Computed example of a mutant assay.
Amino acid sequence: MKTSQTHTPHFRPHLARRVAAEFVGTALLVTVVVGSGIAAQQLSPRDVGLQLLENSIATALGLAVLILMLGPASGAHFNPVVSLVDWLIGRRTKTGLPTRDLAPYLLAQIGGSITGTLLAGIMFDTAPAFSTTVRASGGHLVGEVVATAGLVLLIFALAHTGKGHVTAAAVGVYIGAAYWFTSSTSFANPAVTIARMFTDTFAGIAPASVAPFILAQLLGGALGLGLLFVFYPAATHTARDVVVTHPVKAH
């Protein structure tokens, strides 16, 4: 069965279409994160715990919906770490994100994420401003390593074990849970981290905390990749199915 899976032709939509999907998907993801954070802050101004609950539920549900909506178009990475790992593990078998597609994906994700922050601010009549929320303590950085490692391991393990049909729900649930079990509230995404420094609201992160967070996320991605190869050494053959399986080409 592995041989059949390896040689089955897969169809990838045109690069422009995939990049547009990554831009829109990441923009909407950040709109959900920042917008629900602003709404939570306004609706529950005296209860930070309730704010986090409202923010995490909206993010978990929104992420799952976006993966279902745009996954068939681009794979629904919405995250530079996911794209980098997908590109890296597919080098040997030519099944991951092609090298020529990597930079467009990353630029679309970063540009989309910043657009999402601005869109959320417009909807809630909140002007863009650099965040004053400092998050780069040792505990926060460890939290980002853990959150990102778990996310990478989850996504690529599901692809390898043929459970891609539950990825949307599983990733949404994982991120929603990681809001609570990590001290950093699980950014786990360099593009989202960059974008959230432009909002001085509940979801913001101070510019000085951005670089340490991104380094922690990259380290977490490497850790998740290492764990993936420990548990699933043949995972390189299914890189093409991250995050959502690409449709099979009709004959």
Rank of each mutant, 00 (worst) to 15 (best):
M1V: 11
T6F: 14
H7D: 00
F11R: 15
R12V: 10
P13H: 15
H14M: 12
L15Q: 10
L15H: 05
A16T: 15
R17G: 15
V19F: 01
A21W: 02
G25H: 09
T26N: 08
A27I: 13
G35W: 07
G35P: 12
G35H: 05
S36H: 11
G37Y: 07
G37I: 07
Q41W: 05
Q42E: 14
P45I: 02
S56H: 01
L61Q: 01
L63Q: 02
V65R: 07
L68W: 15
L68T: 12
M69I: 06
M69R: 13
L70A: 01
G71Q: 07
A76R: 02
P80D: 03
L84F: 12
L84P: 00
I89M: 12
G90Y: 03
L97K: 03
R100E: 10
R100C: 03
D101C: 09
G111T: 10
S113F: 09
S113I: 10
S113G: 14
I114S: 12
T115N: 10
T115H: 06
T117P: 12
A120Q: 09
A120D: 08
I122W: 15
F124E: 03
A129L: 13
F130G: 12
T132A: 11
T132L: 13
T132W: 06
V134T: 09
A136I: 04
L141Y: 06
L141M: 13
L141K: 08
V142K: 02
V145H: 04
V145T: 07
A147S: 13
L151N: 09
H160N: 11
V166I: 15
T167E: 06
A168W: 00
G172Y: 04
V173H: 00
G176K: 10
G176M: 11
S184R: 05
S186R: 12
F187D: 10
P190S: 04
A191T: 04
R196C: 08
A203C: 05
A203R: 08
G204S: 09
A206Q: 01
P207H: 10
A208N: 14
A211V: 15
A211E: 07
I214P: 13
L215W: 08
L215S: 11
Q217W: 04
L218V: 13
L219Q: 01
A222Y: 00
A222M: 10
L227K: 07
L227R: 08
L228H: 03
Y232S: 09
T236M: 14
T238V: 09
R240N: 09
H246T: 07
